[in-house]
């Protein structure tokens, strides 16, 4: 594939992303629940029994917000489109499977980032000031792609019943929350927890966001961002390889 074709495919991926946003994200219930989530998370965190400093709290909160929003809709796009036969349309068009997946990822990332920005603004209003904006922005961009890729990987099983995928994604998502240093720093977890934390990309996101607010974390900045990038690449490659296998089974 030469660079002109790749360029064309990226433009077409963007068209898929716009279509996804229009159909699956830019809907009042999705938008409202997207905005309510950080609000409720703040309430829950602030009303917690232990007084925790805001600057510590907010990294876990941003982590949960970005993780849940980026994985909320992305796992069910493929089952929905398979069921509605619109996937058959896409596959008959001159767009590569990679571009369809990229488009779905972009849409999911845009949604995740938008809601996370809402959470960020609420944090600023509550007095959580950012020490390192560059690191925070890099983390959010990379995290959004990484978590969206998780969402899309979850949609690999070729079921046309979106509920099956919702169950699977709940089973994967909630355990990740507990091993990712959201509620306490990784180095305070029991040894098993510390080991498990290493295989969760959310750990590195939460850690690097914590650094951008407090200046200190469990790992160096470069390591956190590097691990996020590595996870993103691996998840995307796995999604592409596996989706290419299962896509024909949905049609």
């Amino acid at each position: 594939m030469n660079s002109r074709i790749i360029g064309e495919q990226v433009v077409r991926a963007w068209a898929v992303a716009k279509k996804d946003i229009r159909i699956y994200y830019y809907k009042p219930p999705v938008l409202i629940s997207g905005i309510l989530m950080p609000v409720f998370l703040y309430l829950a965190f602030l009303m917690g029994s232990k007084p925790v400093p805001m600057s510590f709290l907010i990294s876990g909160l941003l982590g949960m917000t970005l993780f849940f929003t980026s994985t909320a809709v992305s796992p069910v796009v493929f089952p929905w489109e398979g069921q509605a036969k619109t996937l058959e349309r896409l596959v008959s068009c001159p767009i590569a499977p990679e571009a369809i997946i990229l488009g779905d990822m972009i849409a999911s990332s845009v949604f995740g980032i938008a809601v996370t920005v809402v959470a960020l603004i609420i944090g600023l209003m509550l007095g959580a000031s950012v020490l390192n904006w560059v690191v925070l922005i890099c983390a959010i961009l990379l995290g959004a792609l990484c978590f969206s890729a998780i969402g899309i990987l979850l949609s690999v099983p070729p079921t046309a019943i979106p509920q099956n995928i919702m169950l699977l994604s709940t089973l994967v998502k909630f355990p990740l929350i507990f091993i990712s240093g959201i509620f306490m720093p990784v180095d305070q977890l029991p040894p098993l927890g510390q080991t498990l934390a290493l295989i969760s990309p959310l750990t590195y996101f939460t850690d690097v966001v914590r650094i951008s607010y407090t200046g200190g974390g469990s790992f160096p900045i470069g390591f956190d961002l590097g691990m996020l990038l590595a996870f993103t690449v691996i998840l995307i490659v796995a999604s592409v390889v596996l989706h290419k296998k299962t896509m024909p089974l949905r049609i």
Partner: peptide, 19 residues
């Protein structure tokens, strides 16, 4: 990709985006 660019397809079940 090159082959599909030349084709128009009307499938067995209509598949425009309903939304």
């Amino acid at each position: 990709l090159l082959a599909k660019q030349k084709c128009g397809v009307v499938p067995e079940t209509s598949n425009a985006y309903h939304d």
